[in-house]
Structure formats: structure tokens, C-alpha cells
């Protein structure tokens, strides 16, 4: 019983992080139909920003989040300007998705190797005074950093939800998502909406990176495995269904943690991915898709 409870607890903690990892990817895909393969690499980049803030000035990783958000937001704006906006003139959505996939794929190459050159391929992690401490609730252990990650994930998801559904800017984003042309005819500056949302998406990747560098570890070429997780969670949630991403992440985390009980640690990722593919084939609209 205790192991089961502990497994569920682990699943929820890691699942919240998985949801956080997928938020930025889901936003870009949902709003602009850009598939950002370099998402995982931006996560790592955000992790590095936090790592250096901690190492050089001793800033606590969770307190460094605002700085990371600003830095990554600016990077997102630049990314939109240089790489994404030229793709908007492509005639079909399918071409836009494919081409953005290829462009960001080249970006992985550039960023991965730039990070390796600048900061060596060493695995990095932030060790604070509270790393490794756990909180015991009813015989179930929660790691402090994991709980911090859960808190950040929930806060960020809520903030995104409020921006999208309660603010004027969120309304613009939703309008541009539904029909960019009609939105621009109604006087919405679609270009600005797009560039801001890509800034937000990259900033979200950065936040995920902060949580990862404080709970796990990062290395310069580790972006791909996080990208895969982001993909999986985004599809489980259903394309464009941003509010369901954190729940979908928790589902995936529980799945992974649960398969540890059944088949053991080495195959946990494989089992989770297989389940994902089954979902992809039989329910490609995602587990949380709204019924029309």
C-alpha cells in the first residue's frame, strides 16, 4: 500500500513537471501552428540561465524564475522575428507545420552545439540547501524541490489560463488562433499577438528548465528527451487544448510511475511511450478533447 501511495505521489510530482514542459510547445502549436522541435533545447537553455545565476551570484533557482522569464521572453521575440515570421507567408497550414519543424530542427543543431562549446558537455544541476530534503505526509515522501516544481507548474498554468481567458490580450490571442485573417480585419495586430505568444512560449520553456535544473539535471544535448515528453503530453491533451496540458502531464507521469511497479525501472519510459502511441492511433484528438 505504501509503495502504491508513494508511486502515485511520485507520478503526480513528475507529471506536473511534464505538463509544465509541454505548455510552451502546446501554446505555439495551438496559436500559430508552429511545431517547435527546439522546445527541449530552449528548456535546457532556461535551465542554464538559472544555473549560472545560482553559480555566479547565488540566486535561488525558484527566485530566479522572473529573470529567466524575461531573458527567455526576449529570446522568443527574436526567434519569432528571425525564424517564424517568414514562414507565415507559406500557403497551407501543413506546410507551415512541416517547415517550422525543419527550421527549429536546424536550431537544435545550432543551440546544442553552441551550449556545448560555451558551457562544456558536463551535466549540471543546482544543489541548494534544501535539495534532497523531503516532506513526509501519511508515510508518503514528497521531495521539496518536486513540490516546488508542482507549485510552479500549477501557478504558471493558472496564470496562462487567466491571461488567455480573462484579459484583452488573451482575447486577441484566441481570436488570432481561430482565424488570423478575420482577426486582423477586426483591428487586431496579429503580428504582435504572434510575437508575444512566441515570447511567452519560450519563456514557459525557460520556467520548465528552471524546475528541471533544480530537481533533476541538465546537459547541453539533453533537450531531445524533454522534447519527446512535451510532444507526448501535448498530444494526450489534444492539439490546441492548452488548459488540459497539466492534467495530461499528470496522467502521463502516473502512467510512467505506474509502469515502474509493473515492469521495473528500465522499461518505464518505453511503456509510457507505447501507451502514448496507442492513444495517438486510436484517439488522435487527445484524451481531453472537448466533445462537439
Amino acid at each position: 500500500m505504501e509503495t502504491v501511495l508513494q508511486t502515485i505521489a511520485n507520478g503526480i510530482l513528475v507529471g506536473a513537471l511534464y505538463g509544465l514542459v509541454a505548455l510552451g510547445l502546446g501554446l505555439l502549436m495551438g496559436v500559430m501552428k508552429f511545431l517547435n522541435i527546439a522546445h527541449g533545447t530552449f528548456i535546457i537553455l532556461g535551465g542554464y540561465v538559472s544555473f549560472w545565476l545560482f553559480n555566479l551570484w547565488g540566486i535561488d533557482p525558484f527566485l530566479s524564475i522572473p529573470v529567466v522569464v524575461i531573458v527567455m521572453f526576449l529570446i522568443g521575440l527574436v526567434l519569432y522575428k528571425l525564424a517564424f515570421s517568414p514562414l507565415l507567408r507559406l500557403p497551407t497550414i501543413g506546410m507551415r507545420i512541416d517547415t517550422s519543424m525543419l527550421v527549429t530542427f536546424g536550431l537544435i543543431w545550432v543551440l546544442d552545439n553552441a551550449m556545448t562549446m560555451l558551457w562544456t558537455p558536463d551535466t549540471r544541476t543546482i544543489i541548494t540547501t534544501y535539495t534532497g530534503e523531503t516532506l513526509k505526509v501519511f508515510g508518503t515522501r514528497f521531495s521539496i524541490t518536486g513540490l516546488g516544481g508542482l507549485g510552479v507548474a500549477v501557478l504558471v498554468a493558472l496564470a496562462l489560463y487567466f491571461i488567455l481567458s480573462r484579459t484583452y490580450f488573451g482575447k486577441h490571442i484566441r481570436a488570432a488562433t481561430q482565424d488570423a485573417e478575420a482577426a486582423s480585419l477586426c483591428g487586431i495586430n496579429v503580428n504582435r499577438v504572434y510575437s508575444f505568444s512566441s515570447g511567452i512560449a519560450i519563456a514557459l520553456a525557460g520556467v520548465a528548465g528552471v524546475v528541471i535544473v533544480s530537481t533533476y539535471s541538465i546537459n547541453a544535448s539533453g533537450g531531445l528527451s524533454w522534447l519527446l515528453i512535451a510532444f507526448v503530453v501535448m498530444i494526450l491533451a489534444g492539439e490546441g487544448n492548452i488548459n488540459a496540458i497539466i492534467p495530461a502531464g499528470v496522467v502521463f507521469g502516473l502512467l510512467e510511475a505506474g509502469s515502474v511497479l509493473v515492469v521495473g525501472v528500465p522499461y518505464r519510459q518505453a511503456i509510457a511511450l507505447l501507451v502514448f502511441i496507442v492513444v495517438l492511433i486510436f484517439k488522435p484528438q487527445g484524451l481531453f478533447a472537448k466533445k462537439d
Partner: peptide, 28 residues
């Protein structure tokens, strides 16, 4: 055969995930 039923980007993601599954299984 299963992944080819997927369209566009989903095919890319599906094959990517399956290749990772192969990598993990073979690594073990």
C-alpha cells in the same frame, strides 16, 4: 503500419517516439 495512419506532424512524432522506444529496449 500503425504510425502511417497518422498524418503530417503526428507521423513525425509517432516515429520519433517509436525510435526512442527501440533505443531504450535495446539499451536494456
Amino acid at each position: 503500419l500503425p504510425t502511417l495512419r497518422l498524418k503530417g506532424a503526428y507521423f513525425a512524432i509517432g516515429t520519433f517516439a517509436l525510435a526512442e522506444v527501440c533505443r531504450i529496449v535495446v539499451g536494456n
